[in-house]
Protein backbone atom coordinates (compact mmCIF):
# COMPACT_ATOMS: atom_id res chain seq x y z
CA UNK A 1 0.00 0.00 0.00
CA UNK A 2 2.78 2.31 0.91
CA UNK A 3 4.69 1.57 -2.21
CA UNK A 4 1.73 2.12 -4.48
CA UNK A 5 1.13 5.39 -2.76
CA UNK A 6 4.72 6.41 -3.25
CA UNK A 7 4.59 5.35 -6.86
CA UNK A 8 1.49 7.39 -7.45
CA UNK A 9 3.05 10.46 -5.97
CA UNK A 10 6.26 9.95 -7.87
CA UNK A 11 4.45 9.53 -11.15
CA UNK A 12 2.46 12.66 -10.56
CA UNK A 13 5.62 14.54 -9.72
CA UNK A 14 7.31 13.38 -12.89
CA UNK A 15 4.31 14.25 -15.02
CA UNK A 16 4.08 17.61 -13.38
CA UNK A 17 7.73 18.34 -13.96
CA UNK A 18 7.59 17.24 -17.57
CA UNK A 19 4.50 19.25 -18.36
CA UNK A 20 5.83 22.41 -16.81
CA UNK A 21 9.25 22.08 -18.29
CA UNK A 22 8.04 21.35 -21.79
CA UNK A 23 7.85 25.02 -22.68
CA UNK A 24 11.39 25.57 -21.55
CA UNK A 25 12.53 22.66 -23.64
CA UNK A 26 10.84 24.13 -26.68
CA UNK A 27 12.34 27.51 -25.91
CA UNK A 28 15.78 26.00 -25.71
CA UNK A 29 15.16 24.15 -28.92
CA UNK A 30 15.34 20.71 -27.37
CA UNK A 31 13.07 18.21 -29.03
CA UNK A 32 10.33 16.16 -27.49
CA UNK A 33 12.42 13.07 -27.87
CA UNK A 34 14.76 14.25 -25.15
CA UNK A 35 11.82 15.18 -23.00
CA UNK A 36 10.31 11.77 -23.43
CA UNK A 37 13.61 10.21 -22.55
CA UNK A 38 13.76 12.35 -19.47
CA UNK A 39 10.28 11.30 -18.55
CA UNK A 40 10.88 7.65 -19.16
CA UNK A 41 14.18 7.26 -17.42
CA UNK A 42 13.22 8.39 -13.94
CA UNK A 43 10.03 6.45 -14.27
CA UNK A 44 11.86 3.23 -14.71
CA UNK A 45 14.10 3.47 -11.73
CA UNK A 46 12.16 4.96 -8.88
CA UNK A 47 8.84 3.40 -9.62
CA UNK A 48 10.18 -0.08 -9.75
CA UNK A 49 12.27 0.21 -6.70
CA UNK A 50 9.64 1.07 -4.16
CA UNK A 51 7.61 -1.93 -5.14
CA UNK A 52 7.94 -4.67 -2.60
CA UNK A 53 10.49 -7.21 -3.64
CA UNK A 54 12.64 -4.97 -5.74
CA UNK A 55 14.36 -3.25 -3.00
CA UNK A 56 17.62 -1.99 -1.91
CA UNK A 57 19.97 -2.38 -4.79
CA UNK A 58 18.87 0.57 -6.76
CA UNK A 59 18.31 2.66 -3.74
CA UNK A 60 21.34 2.44 -1.64
CA UNK A 61 23.74 3.30 -4.34
CA UNK A 62 22.32 6.63 -5.39
CA UNK A 63 21.11 7.78 -2.05
CA UNK A 64 24.33 7.31 -0.18
CA UNK A 65 26.70 9.30 -2.30
CA UNK A 66 24.14 11.88 -3.21
CA UNK A 67 23.81 12.78 0.40
CA UNK A 68 26.30 15.53 0.39
CA UNK A 69 27.28 15.66 -3.21
CA UNK A 70 23.87 15.98 -4.73
CA UNK A 71 24.68 16.20 -8.38
CA UNK A 72 27.26 16.99 -10.94
CA UNK A 73 24.78 19.48 -12.18
CA UNK A 74 25.18 21.43 -9.02
CA UNK A 75 28.78 21.68 -9.99
CA UNK A 76 27.70 23.16 -13.24
CA UNK A 77 25.61 25.60 -11.36
CA UNK A 78 28.54 26.57 -9.26
CA UNK A 79 30.47 27.43 -12.32
CA UNK A 80 32.49 24.32 -12.83
CA UNK A 81 32.94 22.70 -16.14
CA UNK A 82 30.25 20.43 -17.38
CA UNK A 83 32.39 17.72 -18.71
CA UNK A 84 33.93 16.94 -15.41
CA UNK A 85 37.13 16.13 -17.17
CA UNK A 86 38.49 19.61 -17.00
CA UNK A 87 39.12 19.79 -13.30
CA UNK A 88 40.87 16.49 -13.51
CA UNK A 89 42.95 17.15 -16.54
CA UNK A 90 43.62 20.68 -15.51
CA UNK A 91 45.91 19.95 -12.65
CA UNK A 92 48.56 17.55 -13.66
CA UNK A 93 48.59 17.71 -17.40
CA UNK A 94 50.01 21.17 -17.91
CA UNK A 95 52.87 20.35 -15.63
CA UNK A 96 53.53 16.83 -16.66
CA UNK A 97 54.14 16.73 -20.37
CA UNK A 98 57.24 18.86 -20.79
CA UNK A 99 59.61 17.05 -18.46
CA UNK A 100 62.50 16.14 -20.60
CA UNK A 101 65.46 14.25 -19.31
CA UNK A 102 67.20 17.55 -19.01
CA UNK A 103 64.79 18.81 -16.44
CA UNK A 104 65.90 16.22 -13.99
CA UNK A 105 69.52 16.28 -14.88
CA UNK A 106 70.05 19.93 -14.24
CA UNK A 107 68.65 20.63 -10.84
CA UNK A 108 70.68 23.75 -10.37
CA UNK A 109 69.50 25.39 -13.55
CA UNK A 110 66.59 26.94 -11.82
CA UNK A 111 64.31 28.73 -14.17
CA UNK A 112 66.14 27.94 -17.32
CA UNK A 113 64.35 28.84 -20.46
CA UNK A 114 63.05 26.42 -22.99
CA UNK A 115 65.92 27.45 -25.13
CA UNK A 116 68.14 25.40 -22.91
CA UNK A 117 66.20 22.28 -23.57
CA UNK A 118 65.67 22.70 -27.22
CA UNK A 119 69.10 23.94 -27.89
CA UNK A 120 70.72 21.26 -25.83
CA UNK A 121 69.01 18.23 -27.14
CA UNK A 122 70.38 18.38 -30.62
CA UNK A 123 74.00 19.09 -29.83
CA UNK A 124 73.87 16.65 -26.99
CA UNK A 125 73.26 13.72 -29.24
CA UNK A 126 75.93 14.81 -31.63
CA UNK A 127 78.66 15.55 -29.18
CA UNK A 128 79.99 13.90 -26.11
CA UNK A 129 77.73 14.38 -23.14
CA UNK A 130 80.26 15.47 -20.60
CA UNK A 131 81.42 18.68 -22.19
CA UNK A 132 77.84 19.64 -22.87
CA UNK A 133 76.71 19.21 -19.34
CA UNK A 134 79.73 21.11 -18.35
CA UNK A 135 78.77 23.95 -20.63
CA UNK A 136 75.29 23.86 -19.40
CA UNK A 137 76.47 24.03 -15.87
CA UNK A 138 78.52 27.04 -16.57
CA UNK A 139 75.60 28.84 -18.04
CA UNK A 140 73.10 27.97 -15.42
CA UNK A 141 75.46 28.62 -12.61
CA UNK A 142 76.47 31.86 -14.20
CA UNK A 143 72.88 32.85 -14.32
CA UNK A 144 72.00 32.13 -10.76
CA UNK A 145 75.21 32.00 -8.90
CA UNK A 146 76.99 34.89 -10.40
CA UNK A 147 76.98 36.68 -7.11
CA UNK A 148 77.64 33.63 -5.06
CA UNK A 149 80.51 32.23 -7.05
CA UNK A 150 82.30 35.08 -8.61
CA UNK A 151 85.60 33.32 -8.33
CA UNK A 152 84.62 30.17 -10.09
CA UNK A 153 83.33 31.57 -13.28
CA UNK A 154 86.35 33.42 -14.43
CA UNK A 155 88.22 30.16 -14.33
CA UNK A 156 86.66 29.22 -17.61
CA UNK A 157 88.19 31.75 -19.87
CA UNK A 158 85.47 32.26 -22.43
CA UNK A 159 82.42 31.11 -20.59
CA UNK A 160 81.74 34.11 -18.34
CA UNK A 161 81.45 36.39 -21.32
CA UNK A 162 78.75 34.31 -22.79
CA UNK A 163 76.96 33.96 -19.52
CA UNK A 164 76.87 37.62 -18.83
CA UNK A 165 75.66 38.79 -22.15
CA UNK A 166 73.32 35.94 -22.87
CA UNK A 167 71.68 35.94 -19.49
CA UNK A 168 70.89 39.59 -19.51
CA UNK A 169 69.41 39.40 -22.92
CA UNK A 170 67.33 36.37 -22.14
CA UNK A 171 65.97 37.69 -18.94
CA UNK A 172 65.17 41.24 -19.72
CA UNK A 173 65.30 42.06 -23.37
CA UNK A 174 64.89 39.27 -25.79
CA UNK A 175 61.58 37.60 -26.42
CA UNK A 176 61.19 33.84 -26.34
CA UNK A 177 61.49 33.36 -30.04
CA UNK A 178 64.62 35.39 -30.14
CA UNK A 179 66.03 33.51 -27.22
CA UNK A 180 65.71 30.31 -29.18
CA UNK A 181 67.68 31.78 -32.00
CA UNK A 182 70.14 33.41 -29.71
CA UNK A 183 70.77 30.32 -27.67
CA UNK A 184 70.97 28.10 -30.65
CA UNK A 185 73.56 30.38 -32.14
CA UNK A 186 75.43 30.48 -28.87
CA UNK A 187 75.26 26.78 -28.56
CA UNK A 188 76.57 26.26 -32.04
CA UNK A 189 79.47 28.53 -31.27
CA UNK A 190 80.07 26.89 -28.00
CA UNK A 191 79.84 23.52 -29.56
CA UNK A 192 82.59 24.38 -31.93
CA UNK A 193 84.56 25.91 -29.12
CA UNK A 194 84.19 22.94 -26.86
CA UNK A 195 85.22 20.65 -29.61
CA UNK A 196 88.30 22.70 -30.13
CA UNK A 197 89.05 23.25 -26.48
CA UNK A 198 88.19 19.77 -25.35
CA UNK A 199 91.46 19.29 -23.44
CA UNK A 200 90.68 22.39 -21.41
CA UNK A 201 87.52 20.91 -19.96
CA UNK A 202 89.04 18.70 -17.29
CA UNK A 203 90.43 21.81 -15.66
CA UNK A 204 86.99 23.23 -15.27
CA UNK A 205 85.80 20.02 -13.79
CA UNK A 206 88.44 20.17 -11.19
CA UNK A 207 87.64 23.68 -10.18
CA UNK A 208 83.96 23.16 -9.78
CA UNK A 209 84.16 20.32 -7.40
CA UNK A 210 80.77 21.13 -5.99
CA UNK A 211 79.05 20.26 -9.19
CA UNK A 212 81.37 17.55 -10.26
CA UNK A 213 79.59 14.97 -8.19
CA UNK A 214 76.36 15.58 -9.94
CA UNK A 215 77.53 15.80 -13.45
CA UNK A 216 80.31 13.32 -13.48
CA UNK A 217 77.78 10.54 -13.83
CA UNK A 218 75.00 12.05 -15.84
CA UNK A 219 72.63 9.17 -15.25
CA UNK A 220 73.28 8.59 -11.59
CA UNK A 221 72.62 11.97 -10.01
CA UNK A 222 69.09 11.89 -11.28
CA UNK A 223 68.35 9.64 -8.35
CA UNK A 224 68.33 12.58 -6.04
CA UNK A 225 65.81 14.44 -8.08
CA UNK A 226 63.70 11.54 -9.08
CA UNK A 227 62.64 11.02 -5.53
CA UNK A 228 60.34 14.03 -5.55
CA UNK A 229 58.49 12.33 -8.35
CA UNK A 230 56.43 14.20 -10.87
CA UNK A 231 57.18 17.65 -9.60
CA UNK A 232 60.91 17.09 -9.56
CA UNK A 233 61.60 19.92 -11.91
CA UNK A 234 59.73 22.29 -9.64
CA UNK A 235 60.94 21.09 -6.35
CA UNK A 236 64.54 20.58 -7.15
CA UNK A 237 65.41 24.18 -7.91
CA UNK A 238 64.30 25.42 -4.54
CA UNK A 239 67.01 23.81 -2.48
CA UNK A 240 69.48 24.56 -5.23
CA UNK A 241 69.00 28.26 -4.80
CA UNK A 242 69.26 28.26 -1.06
CA UNK A 243 71.98 25.67 -0.74
CA UNK A 244 74.20 25.52 -3.75
CA UNK A 245 76.08 22.46 -2.57
CA UNK A 246 74.69 19.23 -3.91
CA UNK A 247 75.25 17.44 -0.64
CA UNK A 248 72.70 19.64 1.01
CA UNK A 249 70.41 19.23 -1.93
CA UNK A 250 70.30 15.55 -1.40
CA UNK A 251 69.32 15.94 2.20
CA UNK A 252 66.62 18.45 1.52
CA UNK A 253 65.19 16.46 -1.28
CA UNK A 254 64.84 13.57 1.05
CA UNK A 255 62.98 15.78 3.46
CA UNK A 256 60.71 17.51 1.04
CA UNK A 257 58.86 14.71 -0.68
CA UNK A 258 57.55 13.21 2.53
CA UNK A 259 56.26 16.57 3.59
CA UNK A 260 54.39 17.05 0.38
CA UNK A 261 53.07 13.55 0.45
CA UNK A 262 51.84 14.05 3.96
CA UNK A 263 50.02 17.13 2.88
CA UNK A 264 48.22 15.18 0.21
CA UNK A 265 47.46 12.44 2.64
CA UNK A 266 45.97 14.87 5.07
CA UNK A 267 43.63 16.19 2.45
CA UNK A 268 42.60 12.75 1.46
CA UNK A 269 42.06 11.79 5.05
CA UNK A 270 39.89 14.81 5.58
CA UNK A 271 37.80 13.87 2.61
CA UNK A 272 37.49 10.34 3.84
CA UNK A 273 36.54 11.43 7.28
CA UNK A 274 33.86 13.64 5.90
CA UNK A 275 32.60 10.91 3.69
CA UNK A 276 32.61 8.28 6.38
CA UNK A 277 29.82 9.87 8.29
CA UNK A 278 27.44 9.68 5.40
CA UNK A 279 27.55 6.10 4.17
CA UNK A 280 27.04 4.91 7.70
CA UNK A 281 23.61 6.44 7.77
CA UNK A 282 21.76 4.64 5.07
CA UNK A 283 18.44 5.58 6.53
CA UNK A 284 17.60 9.12 5.66
CA UNK A 285 14.71 11.42 6.38
CA UNK A 286 14.29 14.54 4.28
CA UNK A 287 11.65 16.92 5.47
CA UNK A 288 10.71 20.42 6.57
CA UNK A 289 10.55 21.23 10.23
CA UNK A 290 7.76 23.18 11.78
CA UNK A 291 9.00 23.26 15.32
CA UNK A 292 11.97 22.04 17.26
CA UNK A 293 11.82 22.33 21.02
CA UNK A 294 13.96 21.05 23.82
CA UNK A 295 13.32 20.78 27.51
CA UNK A 296 16.45 19.67 29.28
CA UNK A 297 17.39 16.54 27.49
CA UNK A 298 13.96 15.92 26.03
CA UNK A 299 13.57 16.96 22.46
CA UNK A 300 10.44 17.25 20.43
CA UNK A 301 10.41 17.95 16.76
CA UNK A 302 7.59 18.32 14.31
CA UNK A 303 8.32 17.68 10.67
CA UNK A 304 6.10 17.82 7.65
CA UNK A 305 6.14 16.99 3.96
CA UNK A 306 8.98 14.58 4.08
CA UNK A 307 10.50 11.59 2.39
CA UNK A 308 11.89 8.79 4.46
CA UNK A 309 14.27 6.34 2.96
CA UNK A 310 14.32 3.39 5.29
CA UNK A 311 15.70 -0.03 4.52
CA UNK A 312 15.71 0.71 0.83
CA UNK A 313 12.11 1.79 0.81
CA UNK A 314 10.71 5.23 0.33
CA UNK A 315 8.01 6.38 2.67
CA UNK A 316 6.30 9.70 2.23
CA UNK A 317 4.70 11.45 5.12
CA UNK A 318 2.76 14.57 5.75
CA UNK A 319 3.58 14.96 9.38
CA UNK A 320 6.05 13.51 11.82
CA UNK A 321 6.37 13.92 15.52
CA UNK A 322 9.72 12.95 16.91
CA UNK A 323 10.59 12.47 20.52
CA UNK A 324 13.98 11.62 21.70
CA UNK A 325 16.32 12.13 24.57
CA UNK A 326 19.93 12.98 24.80
CA UNK A 327 22.36 10.50 26.07
Amino acid sequence: MASSNVSTVYISVIDDVISKVREDFITYGVGDAVLNELQATPLQTPIQTPLPGTDTGMYNIPTGPSDYAPSPISDVRNGMAINGADPKTGRPSPYMPPPSPWMNQRPLGVDVNVAYVEGREDPDRGVQPQPLTQDFLMMSSGKRKRDEYPGQLPSGSFVPQQDGSADQIVEFIVSKENTHQLWSSIIVKQETLTQKVTPVIPQRDGIQDDYNDQFFFPGVPTEDYNTPGESAEYRAPTPAVGTPKPRNDTGEDDDEPPLNEDDDDDDELDDLEQGEDEPNTLHLVLAQFDKVTRTKNRWKCTLKDGIMHLNGRDVLFNKVCIFWSNF
Binding site: I14, P42, T45, P46, P50, P72
Partner: peptide, 14 residues
Protein backbone atom coordinates in the same frame (compact mmCIF):
# COMPACT_ATOMS: atom_id res chain seq x y z
CA UNK B 1 16.84 16.11 -4.76
CA UNK B 2 18.57 13.79 -2.36
CA UNK B 3 15.62 11.46 -2.38
CA UNK B 4 15.53 8.46 -4.64
CA UNK B 5 13.44 10.07 -7.30
CA UNK B 6 15.52 13.22 -7.15
CA UNK B 7 18.71 11.27 -7.47
CA UNK B 8 17.39 9.40 -10.47
CA UNK B 9 16.30 12.60 -12.12
CA UNK B 10 19.65 14.20 -11.44
CA UNK B 11 21.52 11.28 -12.90
CA UNK B 12 19.34 11.29 -15.98
CA UNK B 13 19.84 14.99 -16.46
CA UNK B 14 23.51 14.53 -15.93
Amino acid sequence: RRSTIGTCLTETLD
